[in-house]
Design a protein around this nucleic acid. Structure first.
Lengths: 226, 226
DNA sequence: ATTACTAGTGAACGAGTAT
DNA sequence: TATACTCGTTCACTAGTAA
């Protein structure tokens, strides 16, 4: 889960990171003096200066110390820390018992579809999901704004489908999340590994395209239970 | 904006509130000993006990100090503090330059429609929005899960439309946010005062129901610029 | 078991100042 | 102007312990 350090970053650091992000330090370098940062953090110039040095030391920000004013920017690690807190808030405020993913039906059965239809997976789906899946997945391209919701879903337990080896070929574990599309029971399946995908694969007892009369390019709302 | 205190609540308190919310302290009382809380907050039992007393003193939580174990719950003020931070994160992660509000077309022209069509507003709309609005608003009932996005939109500047007095009757200021529905320019208008609504009113140069062939109950995505 | 008081310690902070 | 060092104070934390 965490390559270098497993300890959570102290709250005072994420607080500073958040304020830096709010003034634009996520996308690019932002010019901010230690005095200005001190004002937003409600502390002295000296303490803000120290905080910047600490954040640099923790590799949470990088700095371009110019002649007049320093410019700082969050590192990927710094952004990751903020994302963790953001996801905690999403779990607090967004999650009743489901998350709705908005997206568009995507072409054909992707690469994933081939894997998912392996017998080693299918028998587990039937046992753990309570329905025998139609052989084939519906691929939904997730709206850009909803891609972050996948992180939140992934942070919940889900239904573990074990990996297996068949004919000398190894298939990794996947996680299934029970879901509904237009009130029809289905499940979103994601590989145990792999991150940052914007396409989800959905399995269902029925042939979803036929049953719901949907085709490539149509918009769908996937209601995922959590 | 803030009735009692205008100072931001210290980070260490929102940190504790967040962790309490995560173990279920938002909806109802949750049983948690000071030792357990200390573990989640990464501090001693004694410090956690003190933190609880401080949060009680700040009216951010309430407690039911039973014989065996205390049970604590966030107060509305405590939830409000968390919401502030949540909205900061939304501004960081969700906002590129727009927010999409999902909703359903609602019946008729609500009460608000009458106000909005006053000449005192209409002339300002024309000048500040760049189009002469059709006389009438489209009411959209916002999906429950998207109601929070309205807070985020409200936290941005928008286009201020001043209040006025006409025929002895006073009309309050409203704020307009430029938006698009299916690529047609429009604007979401909200009263300067008032909070927690789940219906938004949309003005547009055209009669939206006719132009887009939409009617009551149809789903629409409103893309609001921020 | 709990919760929470008191006392002692160390870290975080700001003022002054060097660069 | 900047940033950032040293140093003295304060205050938040923990340990021990009472209730």
């Amino acid at each position: 889960m965490c390559a270098i350090s497993c300890h959570a970053v102290d709250e005072k650091y994420t607080f500073a990171l958040r304020k830096i992000a709010l003034i634009g330090g996520m996308d690019d370098y932002v010019a901010v003096s230690s005095r200005e940062l001190g004002e937003t953090l409600e502390m002295s110039q000296q303490s803000a200066s120290k905080r910047i040095l600490e954040l640099l030391d923790l590799n949470l920000i990088v700095r371009d110390l110019g002649a007049r004013k320093q410019r700082i920017k969050l590192t990927p690690a710094g952004i990751e820390e903020l994302k963790k807190e953001y996801n905690e808030y999403r779990r607090i405020f967004e999650l009743t018992d489901h998350i709705t993913i908005h997206g568009t039906v995507k072409d054909g059965m992707g690469e994933g579809g081939y894997y998912i239809c392996q017998k080693g997976y299918m028998t587990q789906f039937e046992k753990k999901l309570g329905f025998q899946p139609y052989e084939g997945t519906l691929n939904v391209s997730v709206d850009k704004e909803d891609v972050g919701k996948l992180d939140v879903i992934r942070s919940t337990a889900g239904i573990a489908i074990s990996g297996f080896t068949d004919d000398g070929r190894s298939f990794g574990g996947v996680i299934a999340y029970k879901a509904k599309i237009r009130n029809i029971d289905c499940a979103v399946v994601v590989p145990e590994r792999s991150h940052y995908v914007d396409v989800i694969e959905i399995i269902c007892q029925y042939h979803l395209r036929r049953t719901l009369s949907i085709g490539t390019g149509d918009r769908v709302d996937v209601r995922v239970n959590i």
